[in-house]
Design a protein around this nucleic acid. Structure first.
Length: 467
RNA sequence: GUCCCCAUCGUCUAGAGGCCUAGGACACCAGCCUUUCACGUUGGUAACACGGGUUCGAAUCCCGUUGGGGACGCCA
């Protein structure tokens, strides 16, 4: 039997990190089994679903590289089919009309709460004669769920989970306005789409019981389930906007690479021995449901940063230049071919030092800034009067040397030696004057990339700016 | 309140009764490398929540306690 899975977000907000991981797991599972991975937008909440949210989800998935198979299914376009199934259950006597008003139901809930009993529908209309129906009340349709025994699900992550049917109530499958409710829609769509494995967040575990009851009433095959533990914030509490319940676009904005996020998300809740750095190809080969852990996990930016740094160092220079230019242009205006060329030459030295694209852009800024390059506080301190004096006396030597990283370094080393100072005594002021900062890629490499005129010009600027 | 799930270093995890004096990774600390910062490298601190069983033997199995989490909508 071929595997068919789906990712089914509801477009009431952005694609958050938990959803991204669910999508990743489904995608990996499908690719591993050479099956089908589909996307279904659960937009039946007409009031809260927005086009922007749908776009954000689609964009987020595309950025993450989780391509789906076939057409996107919009649940809102299948309402008629869902209603038809509800009516079928009604006709078969496996569902019934319920004439309770929302107020009555609220009273029932209150009563149950007060009595310390499970909060559930009392079954008021389950066996009542519909002829007693109050006039003018539009009924909802409820599933006639089993009252005895228990409902059991075999979960690939949680194992066998069972709950007494007495805990469950007769859930509404079709609202009074004729629209289907979530659990019915999910069951009908999963069935119609031929979904074989439902991999989703653990918060759906209890829905699995209700959905199982609907499957049974319909005499349809129940799919395999895998409920993945949720992702918590660093403090162990529910993810909040402060620490991780951000849209994937926010991670992109912070400068994370999609391949790094994929690797991080994969390892968050799934393991394969000691493997940490896992390429997507390798992940497809290895991914299995049994590797999913059963405990919730916490989101940790430090580890994501580390992974991102790894993938950054691995990334193609041209690609990184494009990402950096995009950010730098937003800040400094258009960057010409010369600037791009410097960035490309300097990228190897730059990317070895960054954790995120944002950091990369910040540290690359000096390559494309127009003179005079502003000196930050640390650079100013490094220069001081001694630093400037050192640079001044170094100028003639720099002016005459052949302009390459190796010759520049050799010349400055020779000078340091003859002056009886450490290389740093000359290199640091140079770095400060040329980059405006005390931290940069190797300074002779920087000088070589910048070229003789630009470098000497910057040094002169720094000398002139003496306080 | 009711039901369900979970529990190994700070974090992510390896571990499916003896291979565990509990392994790896991130973070942290120290050393090395070094023109800065990173990278790299070497070493270090650090965990089986607690209490009972079962067993010759338990991180691994069972029960309870505690602590987290999730669900209880005519939302999805």
């Amino acid at each position: 039997m071929s595997v068919v899975v789906r990712f089914a977000p509801s477009p009431t907000g952005f694609l958050h990190i938990g959803g991204a991981r669910t999508a990743l797991f489904n995608w990996l599972f499908a690719r591993h089994h050479k099956g089908v991975y589909r996307l279904r937008i659960e937009d039946t909440d007409r009031a809260r679903s927005t086009k922007q949210a749908v776009d954000a989800i689609l964009d987020g998935l595309a950025w993450l590289g989780l391509d789906w198979d076939g057409e996107v299914v919009f649940q809102s376009q299948r309402l008629e089919r869902h209603a038809e199934v509800a009516r079928q259950l009604l006709a078969e006597g496996r569902a019934y009309y319920c004439y309770c008003t929302p107020e009555e139901l609220e009273e029932q809930r209150e009563r149950a709460r007060a009595a310390g009993k499970p909060i559930r529908y009392e079954g008021t209309w389950r066996d009542r004669d519909p002829r007693e129906a109050p006039a003018g009340v539009k009924p909802a349709i409820r599933l006639k769920a089993p009252q005895e025994g228990e409902t059991v699900i075999q979960d690939h992550v949680q194992g066998e989970v069972r709950v007494a049917n007495a805990q469950l109530d007769d859930l509404i499958i079709l609202r009074a306005d004729g629209t289907p409710t979530y659990n019915l829609s999910v069951v009908v769509d999963d069935h119609d789409m031929g979904i074989t494995h439902v991999i989703r967040g653990d918060d759906h575990l209890t829905n699995a019981f209700r959905q199982t009851q609907i499957y049974r009433a319909l005499e349809w095959d129940v799919p395999e389930f895998a409920h993945v533990p949720l992702i918590h914030g660093p403090d162990g509490a529910k993810l909040s906007k402060r620490h991780g319940a951000l849209g994937v676009d926010a991670y992109r904005e912070m400068g994370y690479l999609p391949e790094a996020l994929r690797n991080y998300l994969l390892r968050l809740g799934w393991g394969h021995g000691d493997a940490e750095i896992i390429s997507t190809e390798q992940a497809i080969e290895w991914f299995d449901l049994s590797g999913i852990g059963r405990a919730p996990s916490r989101f940790d930016f430090a580890k994501l940063d580390n992974l991102n740094g790894h993938y950054l160092r691995q990334a193609d220079d041209e690609r990184l230049v494009a990402l950096v230019v995009e950010r730098l242009e937003a800040e400094l205006g258009p960057i010409g071919p010369e600037g791009r060329s410097r960035l490309l030459q300097g990228m190897a030295g730059l990317k070895a030092r960054a954790k995120t694209v944002a950091e990369l852009a910040a540290s690359a800024r000096f390559y494309v800034r127009p003179r005079p390059v502003p000196l930050d506080e640390a650079a100013e301190q490094l220069l001081g009067s001694e630093g400037r004096a050192a640079l001044l006396s170094l100028m003639p030597h720099l002016a005459k040397v052949e302009w390459s990283a190796a010759t520049l370094e050799a010349e400055v080393r020779r000078e340091a030696e003859s002056r009886g100072v450490k290389l740093g005594a000359l290199a640091q002021p140079l770095r400060a004057a040329v980059t405006g900062s005390k931290v940069s890629p190797p300074i002779f490499e920087v000088m070589a990339i910048l070229g003789r005129d630009e470098t000497l010009g910057r040094i002169e600027d720094a000398l002139r700016s003496a306080p």
